[in-house]
């Protein structure tokens, strides 16, 4: 058998890591033990930013790449990081998966890095957690010190927030001391980082999700596999997207239920924005979409077509979800 090294910049905890281990188990089973995976967590092998070049060069066989760390050579992939009205983890990851599989510009982008695309995931829905005054309307964001990520952070700034840069690991201390009023966060991450101990106002923004996260394999390693194993990996990649979406959605729902139940004595209040405010929030991302498209044209990609295709795919899977439900409930 052959052992593939897998590099991941994050620790081996949480839904995404468990799903990756599921991938490894499945791969071993489906290839009758011919292919095995050896994980290197927490950036011990390659730091997250160095992953695409490192995997492309063969320092690891496969692993996770994030578009936002290398926006130049993952420009197409970072389309997934722009806000949309679709936040459901299954709808958004499925749409992204099909986009990468079928869009020529995106395929070229991975080819150039000597990478084979396997599957994609999402950081899941973007929320805001605040200490003290909750954010009930977009007006409330004005003057608050906010830790934001990516384009979302830029839009918070446009809406009048003061950006404060720190890692998610420091946001506990930041909120505790008052250095932060609010932090951009994912639902599951609130209990994971115990943020409910120091902040209790959660606003569900329902404003898209970061989708520029892909699992890739060194192209040479992939090409050297027999066709039968390639087919297994391709199918498993697709299955992985569903598997991850199911677990991630469940994880967020469990986290929210736990926060509302306040089992640890920390009560969390949930807020939502009005439909008008949601509309405004989406409009605020307009300039960044235009910026993305201009850069895409510069790189020789048909940015407008890619964006159009992406929106159509999002709509397609949202319709499928509404009519037929999730695949795991069918």
């Amino acid at each position: 058998g052959k052992t593939l090294t897998w590099t991941d910049g994050s620790p081996n905890r949480g839904t995404r890591a468990e799903a990756s281990m599921w991938f490894a188990d499945q791969l071993e089973q489906r290839t009758n033990g011919d292919l095995k995976i050896e994980f290197h967590w927490g950036g011990a092998l390659l730091k997250a930013k160095a992953a695409p070049k490192g995997i492309g060069a063969g320092a690891a066989d496969m692993g996770l790449v994030l578009g936002v760390y290398n926006p130049k050579f993952h420009h197409g992939l970072t389309l997934g990081d722009l806000p949309t009205q679709y936040s459901d983890p299954w709808v958004s990851t499925r749409a992204m998966y099909e986009l990468i599989q079928t869009n020529k510009d995106l395929q070229d982008e991975f080819d150039k890095l000597n990478l084979q695309f396997i599957a994609n995931v999402t950081a899941t829905e973007i929320q805001l957690i605040c200490k003290g005054d909750p954010v009930r309307t977009l007006e409330d964001i004005k003057g608050k010190k906010v830790r934001g990520i990516g384009v979302y952070g830029k839009i918070f700034k446009d809406l009048g927030a003061t950006p404060v840069s720190m890692t998610v690991y420091k946001s506990y201390q930041g909120l505790d001391t008052g250095l932060l009023d609010c932090s951009q966060i994912y639902t599951y991450a609130i209990p994971a980082f115990k943020l409910q101990e120091v902040a209790s106002e959660v606003t569900l923004l329902d404003w898209g999700a970061l989708l520029g996260l892909a699992y890739v394999m060194n192209k040479d390693t992939y090409e050297a596999l027999p066709q039968e194993q390639k087919d297994i990996i391709n199918q498993l990649g697709s299955d992985y997207v569903d598997h991850f979406a199911e677990k991630a959605r469940q994880g967020n729902m469990d986290a929210l239920a736990e926060l509302e139940k306040a089992a640890d004595g920390n009560k969390v209040n949930i807020h939502t924005l009005s439909p008008a405010d949601k509309e405004k929030l989406l409009e605020a991302s307009g300039p960044y979409l235009a910026e993305w498209q201009a850069e895409a044209e510069k790189l020789g990609m048909d940015g407008a077509a890619m964006h159009k295709q992406f929106l159509a795919l999002l709509k397609k899977y949202e319709d499928e979800r509404l009519s037929a439900g999730y695949p795991w409930t069918r």
Partner: peptide, 15 residues
């Protein structure tokens, strides 16, 4: 030479 040829930049306010 890689980042020079790629014209690589950091994701941020100023690129």
């Amino acid at each position: 030479t890689g980042v020079w040829e790629d014209e690589a930049y950091f994701f941020g306010d100023l690129g």
